[in-house]
């Protein structure tokens, strides 16, 4: 192994990969949410369909898509490697343990939360991304783009989907509440002046982003 792979296969290095990819994925969430806000325009989905068509066919976006997939893959791969290592680090567990006395639930269950998010991601991609990207959607009449909007309306009339989406967003919120500020710590960015701000910002960010996403299925279920 050369110094580079050695660095990023150490426990500290792998966490750095987790941290960088995690923050990158956070930035994706912001972009994704801003785009999705088009759904709230009262225009029968026109703006949203134009946006989703752009996202499905623009060259730069297609390139970023590859980066995004890599980001997910590295994040998940290192999470799996580290989880296995962490489990192996304590082969015999305690008969009586009270971790709630010394740490938050979210910080101890990032793997569980991440798994929920991964399952959600697969469902989500299957619902919307795959048809939008690889065909299978009806085109909007008289337009040269597909009608993803009607697909969304349809999906979110199903209470099961709505429940899955909302629960997953709660999981994502908890994942981010720990993950966002933790990512800064993992990069060694810690300062008396800025860390308290990053921590507060992280919580606000996590809650707002996930509220934003969760509001979409709820909106369609109850108001459309």
């Amino acid at each position: 192994m050369n110094w580079f792979t050695k660095t990023f296969s150490s426990t500290v290095g792998r966490k750095i990969v987790m941290s960088v990819t995690g923050l990158f994925l956070c930035s994706f969430l912001v972009v994704h949410l801003i785009g999705n806000l088009q759904l709230f325009r009262n225009d029968g989905g026109e703006a949203f369909n134009i946006y989703s068509d752009f996202m499905a066919h623009n060259g730069i976006i297609r390139f970023m898509e590859i980066i995004l997939v890599l980001g997910f893959l590295f994040h998940i791969y290192d999470a799996l490697v580290l989880t296995r290592r962490n489990k192996a680090a304590r082969p015999v567990s305690y008969a009586n343990s009270h971790p709630e006395e010394n740490s938050t639930w979210a910080s101890r269950n990032m793997g569980l939360l991440g798994t929920v998010i991964l399952v959600f991601l697969i469902v989500h991609l299957w619902n919307f991304f795959v048809p939008a990207r690889f065909g299978g959607l009806e085109a909007v009449p008289d337009k040269d783009y597909d009608n993803l909007y009607s697909e969304i309306v349809l999906a979110f009339k199903n209470p099961i989907y709505v429940a899955i989406y909302v629960i997953s967003m709660i999981a994502l919120a908890y994942h981010l509440i720990h993950g966002f500020q933790s990512a800064f710590q993992t990069l060694g960015l810690d300062h008396k002046k800025y860390t308290p701000f990053i921590q507060k910002f992280g919580v606000a960010f996590s809650i707002l982003i996930c509220l934003g996403f969760a509001s979409i299925p709820l909106y369609f279920f109850f108001f459309v």
Binding site: T11, V12, R14, K15, L82, R85, N86, A88, A89, R90, P99, E101, N102, S103, T104, S107, R108, M110, H178, S182, Q185, T186
Partner: peptide, 13 residues
């Protein structure tokens, strides 16, 4: 063979 740090803060607590 120690595990990685997840920043739970349990150690410092």
């Amino acid at each position: 063979g120690f595990g990685a740090c997840s920043n739970t803060g349990a150690c410092a607590a």
